[in-house]
Design a protein around this nucleic acid. Structure first.
Lengths: 379, 379
DNA sequence: CTGAAAGCGCTAACAC
DNA sequence: GTGTTAGCGCTTTCAG
């Protein structure tokens, strides 16, 4: 350490400081630090040393600002990261975004509309390039505003209500109906339904699928039938409340011989109730989950990671369309999936400039859904 | 463009544009848009309308730059978001960060050292304020660099190797030993161990705990005993390879009468193997998991969400210490947990300016760990 | 290969 | 209440 003072520990060093210390111009320092060419090896070393001495760190904000880039972040708002469905979704989104050099920012709304609104506003203020949302809102004012500000918005898992925006959702109705028909095929006619918040579109669609199947079988007096109503329980958002709902159903005078549980947490709650009651009532659940195979639980499966990938791709497409993708962001390849096309799985419908992807589900028989009434499926 | 034209759809409108359109100065427009006081109601409305017309969106980057703030993001690098342990961790981190007005950026290293390094570098370039890492690296050069750049680094779940940094880890050794002793107390002396990658410190510590207990019981020739070695399987990072390892152990001439599985995925794999083999070998797993209660699986439990909260708090503390926390970022309250203190759970050791939190685990008996050799724990 | 000047979009001081 | 003047830290012309 000859002349140059040890280093200023506090104050954030700027490129100007580095340049001065290295005895070069600002621009040269910039070139060196950014690894550009046309810098003499020796000069570069001198600059780098100065940078290290000062604990210099390039201010990416200033850099982006100057280059006219707003940010490289994409926001994802989900209900609760601890729910495997959401975390798998996040994984898929992250993976796909990264191929385009973008970075994922996550936040949980805890299924609160107010929180969701706040998060969206905050993300917009933070300059996210696109927004992926598992929306819990009936009205999407904040999102509409974001859209108007030129930020692509993609609805995941739940469709937009009063907004024209890209979306990726499951074929909930068909999946649920398939599950119920499967049970019917195995001799069940009194099938209980346990579902999430009744305001959620996914829930409503799954309930509709359930009703489709029940009605189709001429069962229980149709959609308004009191008998059917008796077997339907809604608003179980966590395993615990689902457990209670299941216990209630199983305790009826004339209990259902089978259960259709409308999502992963509900399924877990119902399994817990069955165990407590010492019952082995037939069961099919929506969403696959860890240990479903070990337990032998039949489910309506789908791939949340893939869903995330597709949602992210939609956002990237939208960004590409408005020419908002910079370097390293695969521009060509992107044009593969175009309006009106039909991908290997699911169908894309593009209308008014927005794409709606509907992903199919698969029924995976594992035992719990293939037993006739009064039979045990546990090993 | 004479009078207010419809609105320029493309070009990103700047505050200057808005000001011009509203016929006010730049500063006034700024004040209006930012909701500051001292702006006439009428003026404000005029500005807001102009902003809406132009689809104006405040450039947060420029705003931050001007205010001398580098960003409001904190990075979290984990192995795989789809692993419930990591996603619960992320949930805790996000929750705590939000109390300080900071936003979480997540990224998955897929347990690859190279990827981790790249992610860290990228996050640093993106100006994150702090970095939380579940590091898969033996050497932490990138992280050291980040630290030197003034970015607080917190190691989560796995301690730093050659770096002085804050950390939050579990008491793996004690937890594992407790699990094994629990099995011993119920009559088991041949206890199998199935673990993750042998390079992971968590794995090594859990193995050490296992060996502590086995040795303590004078069992199997100690740490180097061939008999013990026979019952130890390492490098099962996913459920599938754990299933294979378990199958192998159970197929030994003289199979173990109990299994200690060293993390959630391993436990799931082992359960799968047990089911396939039609066995009900006693078992205790490290990490709690959904359905463990339904299945009656005894586990060494801990709270990943809490771990995330604590890790985030450590980062916030570090930020506060260097006076790097702005408005809305609870400065006072923060000073509660100080060096050398002992919190309700776990102990904090502060040395050389870094804090090391070691969180305790709890053994939760649910049946699978409380049966003597040769007995079934399944209902 | 290197440098001087200009300015990205915004906000903080101070005027008025 | 409102406007004017600087300048955050960096990169980009365009000269040397």
């Amino acid at each position: 350490m000859p002349d140059p003072a040890p280093a200023s520990p506090r104050a954030h060093a700027t490129l100007a400081n580095v340049a001065e210390r290295a005895g070069v111009s600002l621009k040269t320092a910039s070139r060196a630090v950014n690894g550009e060419r046309h810098v003499a090896e020796e000069t570069r070393n001198r600059v780098m040393r100065a940078a290290d001495d000062l604990g210099f760190q390039l201010n990416g904000l200033a850099s982006l600002l100057k280059r006219g880039i707003r940010s490289d972040f994409v926001g994802l708002v989900t209900g609760d990261l601890a729910n495997p469905f959401y975390s798998q979704l996040a994984k898929g989104v992250e993976r796909e975004l990264r191929t385009a050099g973008l970075t994922l920012v996550v936040s949980s709304s805890d299924e609160s509309g107010a929180r969701e609104r706040a998060l969206v506003d905050e993300l917009v203020a933070r300059q996210v390039r696109a927004l992926l949302v598992v929306s819990t809102l009936e009205s999407n004012a904040s999102l509409a505003a974001a859209q108007q500000r030129g930020i692509p918005v993609v609805f995941v898992d739940r469709p937009p209500t009063d907004l024209a925006a890209d979306s990726v959702v499951l074929d909930n109705r068909a999946g649920a109906a398939a599950a119920v028909r499967h049970l019917q095929r195995h001799g069940h006619s009194r099938i209980g339904f346990i579902g999430d918040f009744d305001r959620l579109p996914t829930h409503r669609q799954r309930l509709d699928g359930y009703l489709d199947a029940v009605e189709g079988a001429g069962g229980a007096g149709g959609r308004d039938g009191t008998e059917t109503r008796m077997l339907v329980r809604e608003n179980s958002h966590d395993a615990e409340s689902a457990r209670r709902a299941a216990t209630e159903l199983l305790g009826l005078e004339d209990p259902p011989t089978a259960l259709f549980t409308s999502n992963n947490r509900v399924t877990i709650g119902a399994l817990s109730a069955l165990r407590e009651a010492g019952l082995t009532t037939a069961l099919v659940g929506f969403d696959d989950f860890d240990l479903a195979d070990v337990l032998g639980v039949t489910v309506v499966a789908h791939d949340p990671v893939d869903m995330g990938v597709r949602a992210a791709r939609l956002a990237l497409d939208a960004l590409a369309e408005r020419g908002a993708l910079h370097g390293g962001e695969r521009p060509a390849e992107r044009s593969g999936e175009r309006p009106g096309e039909r991908s290997a799985e699911g169908s894309t419908v593009r209308g008014g400039g927005t794409a709606s992807l509907v992903l199919p589900t698969t029924l995976v028989p594992r035992g719990s859904g293939e037993v006739p009434p009064g039979t045990s499926w546990r090993r």
